[in-house]
């Protein structure tokens, strides 16, 4: 049996631990409330002079004195990392809210307060959290000087950091998809969603040609590019889609391409669809190809091609063929004759 004295010591230890835990809860709560209040106070103090600075920086009639006063006010407040972070957050918020013409002014503030250096320093910092915050900030401020550092982080061991760097890269780099040069890069659905969210914020002229990356060795990249071709309605990708359809054996990819063909009405790809109808053994793919043919195929060829599928032993395929024949407006009596 264990000595009772040991049990007593354990009881004392656990009691102390429990009291310590309760004390920690209270301290944490008080700290949280204190920091929240402090945060709000600094935020309130920064807001007004910052707004004046951003709005009036470009205004040449503004008195130099008041501008300098506001500048000094903020400079005085932002001596600690915490208050600098609050200023950064305010700038990022302003950027989301203000019109395009004011963005230049925000950038001036960004440079004037040395936030560019601050961000660059934090990107190189050891802490993951600081790095991520800095990446987000630099991307938001469109600080192109940080691109080399961001590029370095694309190969970081920490997946979280890698993913964040990827998003910053898309926002900052001249060619947002340049990171795909790395043949090993994989894109999770989460990465794809975030990249897409950043791409839609870009100037439409800067949207890259996704068709160029359809020969990437990673399936996830090809899938992403196919989704983006559809999202941004890149009709110009038809040649690359043609090549992809001819080369790939992956049924999932083929079905995605078929979906694009049907939605973008890429009639030039009829021959490739016909090839799938002729050669595939995958019944789902076949059904889809038959449906696509009904939508985009020339009447005569579609009728000829699909005529034989009307009698297919797989009822789902024969139904798809009949539906497609109805889509190309083969009237009821002719369809019956064909079936007969």
């Amino acid at each position: 049996m264990i000595e009772i004295a040991i049990i007593w010591s354990l009881i004392k230890l656990l009691t102390l631990l429990s009291l310590g835990l309760i004390a920690t809860i209270y301290v944490l709560r008080l700290r949280k409330i204190y920091l929240q209040k402090k945060h709000l106070r600094i935020e309130r103090l920064i807001q007004k002079p910052l707004a004046t600075l951003i709005v009036k920086l470009a205004d040449h009639t503004t008195e130099e004195v008041s501008r300098d006063e506001n500048f000094l006010k903020i400079k005085k407040l932002c001596k600690t990392n915490r208050s600098t972070e609050i200023l950064i957050r305010q700038l990022m918020k302003s950027q989301n809210v203000l019109e395009y013409s004011s963005l230049g002014d925000i950038n001036k503030v960004f440079l004037a307060f040395g936030l560019q250096e601050y961000g660059m320093k934090n990107i190189r910092h050891k802490s993951t959290t600081k790095k991520i915050k800095a990446l987000k900030f630099m991307a938001s401020m469109k600080c192109h000087r940080s691109v080399p550092y961001v590029t370095d982080l694309l190969n970081d061991n920490r997946s979280l950091l890698r993913s964040e760097a990827l998003i910053s890269f898309v926002s900052l780099a001249k060619d947002p998809l340049y990171f795909l040069e790395d043949r090993d890069v994989k894109l999770s659905l989460w990465d794809q969603i975030r990249i897409h969210r950043h791409l839609i914020k870009l100037d439409p002229a800067k949207i890259p040609d996704f068709g160029e990356w359809l020969n990437h060795p990673q399936i996830s990249v090809v899938q992403f590019c196919l989704k983006m071709i559809l999202e941004f309605k890149q009709f110009r990708a038809d040649k690359q889609l043609k090549a992809l359809l001819a080369n790939t054996k992956n049924a999932g990819i083929q079905m995605m391409v078929l979906n694009i063909i049907i939605k973008l009405q890429l009639v030039d790809l009829e021959n490739e669809v016909l090839l799938i109808v002729r050669n595939t053994k995958n019944s789902r793919l076949l059904r889809m190809a038959i449906a696509v043919l009904g939508e985009i195929g020339s009447k005569a060829r579609t009728r000829l091609m699909l005529g034989e599928f009307v009698f297919h032993p797989n009822s789902k395929i024969s139904q798809a063929a009949r539906r497609s024949l109805t889509t190309i407006k083969l009237n009821e009596s002719r369809l019956k004759r064909l079936i007969a």
């Binding site: 049990i7 354990l10 009881i11 009691t15 429990s18 835990l21 809860i25 944490l28």
Partner: peptide, 16 residues
């Protein structure tokens, strides 16, 4: 008492 204090400590930890 030991078991009781242990259970209490566990609850305190979950509160934390």
């Amino acid at each position: 008492l030991f078991v009781y204090v242990f259970a209490f400590a566990l609850s305190c930890f979950s509160l934390l």
